[in-house]
Design a protein around this nucleic acid. Structure first.
Lengths: 332, 332
DNA sequence: TTGTAAGCGTTATCAT
DNA sequence: ATGATAACGCTTACAA
């Protein structure tokens, strides 16, 4: 690999001058500057970013930890995160990991990134503390579950949003509503939605029956299976079911179809997020729209502020209820 | 940041010994080994990977360049790529970029990765040549279009696969079949599918009408709009339409619904890839299944071999035709 | 305006 | 079995 020294030799200057040129210091005489640039060109020289970062302690890299790339909702947020960060001169990369590999993260990211964005992942408090003690700020795009309660985040106010949905279901005559969350055991952002749901349910004056909670694992297939098992065992005790995300809600639709349960007549189904697929299902899915782009902008703004040493503050974004055929009978 | 030197001091040894311990050299006396490990523990020391890579010239990192994360098909492949690479001790990260930013890639990746995987991206020949001259092998998961013809890849044999689909459509009585590709102008992997389609069409004895090609931009929304415009302008001249991917085919279904065109009676629609959504659309989508996991395994194997200096070879994988309601009338 | 040289945190060679 | 020490490619005082 061609290094700074070779460029310097060819240009007939010292290696420092090459650095000056590369870092756009105005002090270099125009003529030498040209000589250096020409040498760089001729040799096809590329600065070694590892070496640079080692020296400057700045990588201009941000890691985005993703839970499940197969969820198109999260993929959509990624797009916006990346765009936003690029605008600020950062290089973004995505990474997924499993709980068991969490400790590897510390060693893998240490020194390699200026900050970390969490997307549907929740790190252990100790891991976050570790990063922060090493000046690597961590921001979560959605509120992590209990385990990650110390992490700065941006999210919707789920109680308020789900209340909109519950009110809508009430208007349709439903009084008993079930909820499908994802991976109940592992504190995830679905847990936050579930808790918001419980508070909203109480606010709407409805009672919660613990047996109305289903575990859809966050994914289409798991959700389909989970509801399928319930339906096979007899009629569901609830008349409406809310999925913590659209992917699971869509899985529920599929389960209903499989079990011969008519939607929305026998069971109303709704989701959260409003993914592309939701308008295409049969029937189309009623859902809470999650504003991806504003969310990404907010989260990135927060992270960059923290990199600059600013304290994190609180702020909730607004969602929107989108009513479709999975909760209301379409006439005609 | 706590460094090797501090660990050495606390353990009462030299920094070299710390390296020996960290790199699991058997030569260290058990007692000193323990002292060093304890010092590491107490100080919460993490090796600086930048420094290590700078010295060893190995990063154990692989970059995956992604075209469009919003496509669940590509997201699914990513999952498998990551799993596969992790098994081999590599750290994977994903990155997306636009054509205009291609030259930035060289500087950004140079020295930071041991290899590059392309997923639906096609780099300019010069960029690839540049990486390879610097010993950074590049492998594409799907065959890139013309522009990237020098890149090693793994893909389906599209002519063979699409012939299965065309035969199926012929059995349903279709003789004129349209094709929707994505971003015709920019040589992408969709171009490869289109060319395969043309060859398959000829092999099936059907004639191709250039006006039967649509540009669906690779995405659901663009596809919906493209076919929508056609249908608004009058009846399509073809009775069956094949999308270069399922996302576009699903967009076509939506366009048909919007235009009051019955599927499959008035227009049969089929896609490629078999994404999750395809079984959920109304009607469900006939498609060519793309085996993601075997694909990922193959591509990773090829890349790792090239990192080890082995020459790339050729090999095509097998897909599978999945017939659903968008091409055949379901009875009952 | 340019050159010298120290240092970033490692690994690896060579002594000891 | 362990310790000095020279790289790796870069930035940056400081000196010239």
């Amino acid at each position: 690999m061609v290094s700074r020294k070779e460029v310097a030799d060819r240009a007939g200057v010292s290696s420092a001058v090459v650095s000056y040129v590369l870092n756009d210091r105005k002090i270099v005489k125009e003529e030498t500057r040209r000589k250096v640039l020409q040498a760089i060109e001729e040799l096809g020289y590329q600065p070694n970013l590892l070496a640079r970062s080692l020296k400057t302690k700045k990588t201009k890299q941000i890691a985005v930890l993703v839970n499940y790339l197969g969820n198109p909702f999260e993929a959509g947020i990624l797009l916006h995160l990346e765009h936003e960060l690029r605008e600020h001169g950062y290089f973004v990369f995505f990474h997924t990991y499993r709980k068991e590999e969490e400790d590897q993260l510390k060693s893998v990211f240490m020194g390699r990134v200026d900050g970390i964005l969490l997307l549907g992942q929740s790190l252990q408090a100790s891991t976050v503390a570790d990063f922060e003690s090493r000046e690597v700020p961590v921001v979560s795009v959605m509120q992590p579950g209990q385990a990650g309660s110390r992490i700065a985040y941006r999210d919707l106010d789920w109680e308020a949003e789900l209340l909109k949905l519950i009110r809508h279901l009430q208007e349709q005559g439903h009084t008993r509503i079930g909820f499908m969350s994802g991976e109940i055991a592992s504190a995830s952002h679905y847990e936050v939605r579930f808790e918001g749901f419980l508070r909203a349910l109480a606010a709407a004056g409805l009672t919660w029956h613990p047996e109305d909670q289903l575990d859809g694992g966050g994914r289409f297939e798991d959700a389909e299976r989970a509801l399928g098992v319930r339906l096979a065992a007899g009629k569901a005790p609830f008349t409406a079911l809310v999925g913590a995300n659209d992917l699971m809600a869509a899985g529920c639709l599929s389960a209903c179809r499989g079990a011969g349960v008519r939607v929305p007549e026998e069971l109303a189904v709704a989701g959260c997020e409003n993914i592309l697929m939701s308008a295409q299902t049969d029937p189309p899915l009623t859902t809470l729209h999650y504003p991806r782009q504003p969310m990404a902008t907010e989260a990135v703004g927060l992270l960059l502020a923290m990199i600059d040493g600013v304290q994190a503050d609180m702020k909730a974004l607004d969602g929107e209820l989108i009513v479709r055929g999975s909760t209301v009978r379409i006439h005609g």
